[in-house]
């Protein structure tokens, strides 16, 4: 009966705290605490069991490690696929928005691969790029029988194969975003422009595109974050980070450093670097979608 003495607003606040608590415990315990630990362990020699404090020298050592720079370089090189992963879905969304016969079926088909695990898509992509795969069949079919590629097996092309697969995996989500954006476009704006004598391209350039800008920004951020933190499955089944270090990105480097080489401290340090990168992108995202936070 002690609760009886609380005022109404105290009771409301208490309820609020109690309601939020389980979620907070989960997020703090499994996300917040590990970040703190990662910071601590990044200054230690750590194999998962014993820790020895080393201090900031771990950081300077890490930055002298060529593997880290290779991984960062690979991540940077993959960035050139981001415009493709946005432009292609934008074009597809505009096509769908023309509402040609059967567009709803097309829409479902275009979105369907989104539901497939990237593990499976990676396996399929491996089949596509393989020596006896579909890509070589196509090349031979168009008459270039002398040319045979092996993109995944070649250090100079493996990363591109990964990028192409990445673009394919992002098509569904981004197309869906842009299509929603187009659906919220007021058709009377287009009609008014048409009456003013604007051609298709001008309407797209001056009305549709500005309207979509918020959606494009959101898609951009989501795509970049996926590029930095969701490629693991693809790499794991397609290349295993190779050949050499040709497709080792930050996230795969973390996995390898930690679990193949047992250098937990260094892996935690790499994790913080990755977090710093996605954090910057994330702040941009918060500012875009969270104006009311």
């Amino acid at each position: 009966m002690k609760a009886r003495r609380l005022t109404l607003s105290q009771r409301r606040q208490l309820a609020g705290v109690v309601f939020a608590l389980p979620a907070l415990a989960l997020v703090i315990g499994l996300i917040g605490v590990p970040i703190g630990q990662a910071v601590y362990y990044s200054f230690t020699q750590w194999d998962g069991i014993t820790t020895t404090w080393i201090g900031p020298s771990t950081w300077s050592q890490a930055f002298h490690n060529s593997d880290l720079w290779t991984a960062l370089k690979n991540n940077a090189a993959l960035l050139i696929w981001v415009p493709v992963a946005l432009g292609l879905p934008l074009a597809i969304a505009v096509l769908l928005h023309q509402r040609v016969a059967g567009w709803k079926i097309f829409r479902s088909i275009y979105f369907l691969p989104t539901a497939i695990s990237w593990v499976v898509l990676g396996l399929v992509a491996e089949r596509f790029f393989a020596y006896q795969g579909t890509l070589n069949s196509i090349i031979h079919a168009i008459g270039l029988s002398g040319v045979t590629t092996n993109m995944l097996g070649n250090e100079s092309t493996a990363l591109s194969a990964l990028g192409i697969t990445f673009v394919f995996t992002m098509i569904g989500t981004n197309t869906m975003l842009f299509l929603t954006g187009l659906a919220t476009l007021d058709p009377s704006l287009e009609e008014a422009a048409r009456i003013d004598g604007a051609g298709r391209w001008r309407i797209f350039r001056h009305i549709t595109l500005p309207h979509l800008s918020r959606f494009i920004q959101l898609a951009f951020v989501m795509t970049v974050i996926a590029l930095f933190s969701a490629l693991f499955s693809l790499i794991f089944v397609m290349t295993g980070g190779g050949p050499g270090y040709a497709t080792t990105t930050m996230e795969f480097l973390i996995y390898q450093t930690g679990f193949s080489q047992g250098q937990f401290g260094t892996a935690a340090l790499y994790g913080l670097i990755l977090f710093a990168i996605t954090g910057v992108v994330g702040i941009v995202q918060l500012r875009l979608i969270g104006s009311d936070l």
Binding site: A23, V33, Q37, S229, I254, G258, F264, A267, G271, F275
Partner: peptide, 19 residues
């Protein structure tokens, strides 16, 4: 809580795994 959306698993995977 919302900023925790931005934390990629790989960033915390080592301590998480040990815990």
């Amino acid at each position: 809580v919302v900023s925790a959306m931005m934390v990629p698993l790989q960033a915390i995977v080592m301590p998480e795994f040990v815990n």
